[in-house]
Amino acid sequence: MKKVLFIVGSIRQESINRKVALAISKLLSADFTPIFAEIKNLPLYNQDFDGKEPSEVIAFKEQIKACDAVIIVTPEYNRSVPGVLKNALDIGSRPGGQSVWDGKPVGILGASEGAIGTALAQQHLRLIVSFLNMPAMSQPEAYVRYHHALLSEDGKILEAGTKAHLEKWVAAFEAWVKKFVI
């Protein structure tokens, strides 16, 4: 059983990216267990805390260590990733030489109501995870165009084309993870 840590780059209570992440988690095969990280209570990264991290940071890092792979579902804020997501990535990478992200395969996607989806945020995120030595799945990409009829109340994907694409994305992600995790 492989554990997949989902990190949602939005902390908004009614986040469309959280809704999409939950829907995607239901598409995982029985070989994969979804685990959701909560990043809203993480303090801002401060190098003064290296080696004496607050309990929230320690718990977050332990959650990352316990997982085999990561899926990041991000909105796009001002053509980039939200600050809260960048903060979580920074926290996991510090102190220097002790990154808990190292070698974790990652899948990146995002949802937006806008026409270009989260293309630029995902591009920036790929640069960040590359530096963190996280092998990122490059194909297929997933830029989910969110609208009110996309998901049912219980989180099922209603739009046939989007569901088929995300099923393909999940299958590719699972195959990607298996290249790195035995």
Rank of each mutant, 00 (worst) to 15 (best):
Q139E: 14
F60E: 02
E113Q: 12
S15R: 05
V73A: 15
Q63T: 12
M1D: 13
A88F: 02
A172Q: 13
T162S: 07
N133I: 00
E153R: 11
L22M: 10
K156W: 02
M1T: 14
M137V: 10
H147Y: 06
A88M: 08
L27E: 03
K168P: 04
Q13C: 06
I24G: 07
K26R: 14
Q47I: 01
N78K: 15
H165R: 14
I11R: 01
I71V: 15
F6N: 02
A142T: 01
E153F: 07
E56W: 00
A66H: 04
Q13I: 05
H124A: 13
A142M: 11
I71A: 14
Q47K: 09
H147L: 03
K3V: 03
A115R: 12
A115Y: 06
V8L: 05
P54K: 01
L166Q: 07
P54W: 06
Y146V: 05
E153M: 12
F60C: 05
D68N: 15
K40E: 08
I157H: 03
S29Q: 06
R12T: 06
G96C: 13
S10G: 10
F32A: 00
I7W: 02
K3N: 14
V20P: 09
S112G: 00
K65A: 04
W101M: 04
I71W: 14
G107P: 02
A164G: 00
I91W: 13
E62I: 01
A119L: 04
I11D: 03
V70R: 09
R145M: 09
V170T: 15
Q123K: 09
G96A: 05
V144R: 04
I7C: 09
R94N: 03
A115N: 00
G92T: 05
Q122S: 11
A142K: 03
I11S: 08
G92L: 04
L109M: 13
V100N: 07
K86F: 11
K156E: 14
L127H: 12
P34R: 02
V170L: 09
E141W: 09
N87H: 13
L125V: 07
H147D: 03
S29G: 13
V4F: 15
G110M: 02
L132P: 01
L109D: 01
L109E: 01
E56H: 05
L120A: 12
A172M: 10
S55Y: 05
L27Q: 10
V84N: 13
S15G: 03
N41K: 14
I128H: 06
H147W: 07
V181D: 01
L158P: 01
S29D: 14
G103R: 12
K19L: 04
A136D: 12
A119E: 10
I39C: 05
F180A: 10
I157P: 01
P135M: 11
L125P: 07
T74C: 14
L166V: 08
I7V: 10
V100G: 11
Q123F: 15
F6W: 08
G97A: 06
A111H: 02
L89V: 11
